[in-house]
Amino acid sequence: MADDKTKTGAADRDRVNVNEDYELQYWTKALGVSADELRAAVKAVGPTAAAVREHLGK
């Protein structure tokens, strides 16, 4: 399903969507990791930003 850019807010900011190029670029820069590291973290702990940050030690 495509990302609905008209629906933004806390729920959108709390999730890491590695299937959207612009989000992948944002999160890799924000967390200082490679795209592969980010994808692996999301696969390991799910898409919530808090879980991904914790998994990456950020």
Rank of each mutant, 00 (worst) to 15 (best):
Ala41Val: 08
Asp3Ile: 12
Asp14Thr: 00
Arg53His: 09
Leu56Gly: 03
Arg15Met: 13
Ser34Leu: 05
Tyr26Val: 08
Arg39Ser: 06
Lys5Leu: 13
Asp4Gly: 05
Asn19Cys: 10
Arg13Glu: 13
Ala51Gly: 04
Asn17Glu: 06
Lys7Trp: 05
Leu56Asn: 09
Arg15His: 11
Gly9Trp: 07
Ala44Thr: 02
Ala50Cys: 04
Leu38Pro: 01
Tyr22Ala: 13
Arg13Trp: 03
Asp21Val: 10
Ala11Trp: 07
Ala40Arg: 09
Asp36Val: 09
Gly46Asn: 09
Leu24Phe: 03
Glu23Val: 01
Arg13Gly: 05
Arg15Val: 12
Lys5Ala: 06
Ala10Glu: 14
Val18Pro: 00
Arg39His: 10
Gly57Cys: 02
Ser34Asp: 11
Asn19Arg: 11
Ala2Asp: 08
Thr8Arg: 10
Thr28Arg: 05
Asp21Ala: 14
Val16Cys: 01
Thr48Ile: 10
Glu54Ser: 09
Arg15Thr: 13
Glu37Pro: 04
Glu37Ala: 12
Asp21Tyr: 11
Gly9Ile: 10
Val42Gly: 05
Met1Asn: 07
Leu56Trp: 04
Glu54Leu: 12
Leu38Glu: 06
Val42Trp: 10
Ala41His: 06
Thr8Cys: 04
Thr48Gln: 15
Trp27Tyr: 10
Val16Thr: 00
Gly57Ala: 08
Asp21Phe: 10
Val33Gln: 05
Glu20Val: 11
Arg39Pro: 05
Val42Leu: 08
Val18Ile: 15
Gly32Arg: 03
Val16Leu: 02
Pro47Lys: 02
Ala49Tyr: 08
Val16Ile: 09
Ala11Cys: 03
Thr8Leu: 15
Thr48Cys: 05
Ala41Asp: 05
Arg39Val: 13
Leu56Gln: 07
Asp4His: 02
Val18Phe: 07
Glu20Lys: 15
Thr6Trp: 15
Asp14Cys: 12
Arg13Tyr: 13
Asp21Trp: 12
Tyr26Gly: 11
Ala11Lys: 03
Val33Asp: 00
Val52Thr: 00
Thr28Phe: 04
Arg39Lys: 04
Ala51Ile: 05
Ala11Met: 11
Met1Trp: 10
Ala30Arg: 11
Leu24Gly: 07
Gly57Tyr: 00
Asn19Leu: 14
Thr6Lys: 14
Leu24Asn: 02
Tyr22Lys: 04
Arg53Lys: 07
Leu31Asn: 00
Pro47Leu: 05
Asp3Asn: 03
Leu31Ser: 04
Ala40Cys: 01
